[in-house]
Design a protein around this nucleic acid. Structure first.
Lengths: 238, 238
DNA sequence: TCACCGGTAGTGGTCCGACCACTTGGCTGG
DNA sequence: CCAGCCAAGTGGTCGGACCACTACCGGTGA
C-alpha cells in the first residue's frame, strides 16, 4: 500500500478525516493551498483528491467561498448511484431492474403501513396528473414523482435514495422509449391505480404484490428485448 | 446548464461518450494531452475529469500505458458503494442494514433455489473455517466470504456487488467491534448453520427467513446502541 | 441610525510548462 | 534466436500565474 499515488493517498486521508469525525458535516475545510501544504503535496494533486471526493458526494466546493463537508446524508452520498444506472448495459439493466423490484416492492409495502393522509393525497395528485396530459416528458416526470413520494413514505431515506438512482431520468427514458410505444400505457395506468388502492387500504401485502408486478412487467419486457436482434437502448452490440 | 465549470462539462462529455457506446469497454482512450485539446481545455482540468470518472469506476488509468474504459460491470461501477457505507453514521447505518436485510434475504432465497453442489461445499468450508479459529480478523474474513459466496450463487452480479459494498470490511469491522464483544458469537454461529441448512435443503422460504433474522439481529442491536449514551462506532456525537 | 453600495481581500477555477516515473516495444548484441 | 537494454511515449507531480466569484467591511447617503 506504500506505492499508491500521491493523489490516491490524499483521497484516503481526507476520507479518513471525514470518517473519523475529525471533519464534521457542514464544516468548512482549510483552503486548497493550505491542505496541499499540510499533506505535503502540490495544489494540483490536492485538487484532484478534492474533485474525487466531490463526485462521491462527500465534499462540496463553492467557488469563491471554500470547500465544505456535505451533510453526509443518503441523498448526498448515493447520488453517484444514478451514474451506475446510466452506464449499465444489456443484461446488467435487467439485474438493476430486479434489484429495483425487490426494493420497490418492500418500500411500497412499508409505505402502505405508514403513509399519512397528506402523502396519500400527493401520490393521488401525481397519478391524476399523469392521466391528464399527453406530453411523454410530463408523464414520465409525474411517474417518477409518484414512486418517489411512495419511497419517501416508507421512512427509510437510504432506500429512497437508492431507488431514486435506480429510477433516474435518463435510465428510465432509455428503457421507456421502446416500452411505452407498445401500448403499455394503459397497463401502467392500471398498475399504478392498483398500487394506490393498496396504499389507501393500508394493505402492505397487496401493495407489495402490486409494486412487484409493476416493476416486474417492465423487467420481463426488457428481458425479452435482449433476446431480439433489435439493439436495446444502452445495449451497444459487440 | 451553460454556466457549469469546464471540468464538470468535460466529465459529462466523457460520460456521454461512454454511455452512447462511442467508447467501448476495455477500449483505450486518447492521451490526456490529446483529450484536452479535443475538448478545448487544459490538461489539468482534463485530468480532474478523468480522476472523477476513475473513482466512479468507469475509467482506469495505467501509469505509462494509457487510460482505459473499464468493463463497466457491476463490480467496477458499484465499488463506490463501499465508500457510502464507510462514511455513514448513526441512524443511517441502521437504514443501510435494513436495505441489506432486504437484499440479503432475497439473495439467500434465490441462492437456495439455484446453488450448485460445488458452491454449497464452498459455503460449508467458510463456515467450518470460521469455527476453527479464534483470530477475529480471520473469522470476519470467512464471514464475509460466507455471504459473498451465497450472493454469487443467487446469480445476480449487480445485487452481489451492492451487498459487497454493504458488507465492506471497514463497515462491518466498525459495527462488529462492539457486537461480538457481547457474546453474540455463538448466536451468529447458530444463524449461519441455519442458513446453510436451508441452502442444503434448497428451501428458499427457510433461507429467506434465516438470512433476514441474521441481519435483523445485528440491526436490532445497533438500533439499541443508538439510544444509549455510549457513542456508537461511526456516530460522532455532536 | 440604518440601509445601501462599492471596494477589496481571499477563495476556488483554469491554464501553462516543466520534469518525474513507469510501460512498452523495438533494437542491439550475444 | 533470445535476453537484455534503451528510447519514445504515457500518466503522475509540481510550481506558479492569472481569472472568476464570494463574502465581508467600510463609507455614504437618506
Amino acid at each position: 500500500m506504500q506505492k499508491a499515488t500521491v493523489t490516491q493517498r490524499a483521497i484516503e486521508q481526507l476520507k479518513a478525516m471525514i470518517g473519523s469525525g475529525e471533519l464534521q458535516p457542514g464544516q468548512r475545510l482549510p483552503t486548497e493551498r493550505d491542505l496541499a501544504v499540510q499533506l505535503g503535496i502540490s495544489r494540483s494533486s490536492m485538487r484532484e483528491a478534492i474533485r474525487a471526493l466531490t463526485v462521491l458526494g462527500a465534499l462540496e466546493a463553492r467557488h469563491g467561498s471554500g470547500i465544505y463537508v456535505t451533510q453526509l446524508e443518503a441523498g448526498d452520498l448515493l447520488e453517484t448511484f444514478g451514474v451506475v444506472a446510466d452506464l449499465s448495459r444489456g443484461p446488467q439493466l435487467v439485474e438493476l431492474l430486479e434489484v429495483r423490484r425487490i426494493l420497490e416492492s418492500t418500500a411500497t409495502a412499508l409505505a402502505a403501513a405508514r403513509i399519512t393522509r397528506t402523502q396519500l393525497a400527493e401520490v393521488e395528485d401525481h397519478l391524476a396528473a399523469m392521466e391528464a396530459t399527453d406530453d411523454p416528458d410530463e408523464i414520465l416526470s409525474h411517474d417518477l414523482a409518484f414512486h418517489r413520494t411512495i419511497a419517501a413514505a416508507a421512512g427509510n431515506d437510504t432506500m429512497a435514495a437508492i431507488l431514486e438512482g435506480l429510477s433516474s431520468r435518463t435510465f428510465r427514458a432509455r428503457v421507456w422509449r421502446g416500452y411505452e410505444q407498445e401500448g403499455a400505457f394503459e397497463r401502467t395506468r392500471r398498475e399504478h391505480t392498483r398500487i394506490l388502492r393498496a396504499l389507501t387500504a393500508h394493505d402492505p401485502e397487496a401493495a407489495r404484490a402490486a409494486a412487484a408486478a409493476h416493476v416486474g412487467e417492465v423487467e420481463e419486457w426488457l428481458r425479452g428485448q435482449l433476446g431480439n436482434a433489435t439493439p436495446t437502448p444502452g445495449d451497444r452490440g459487440a
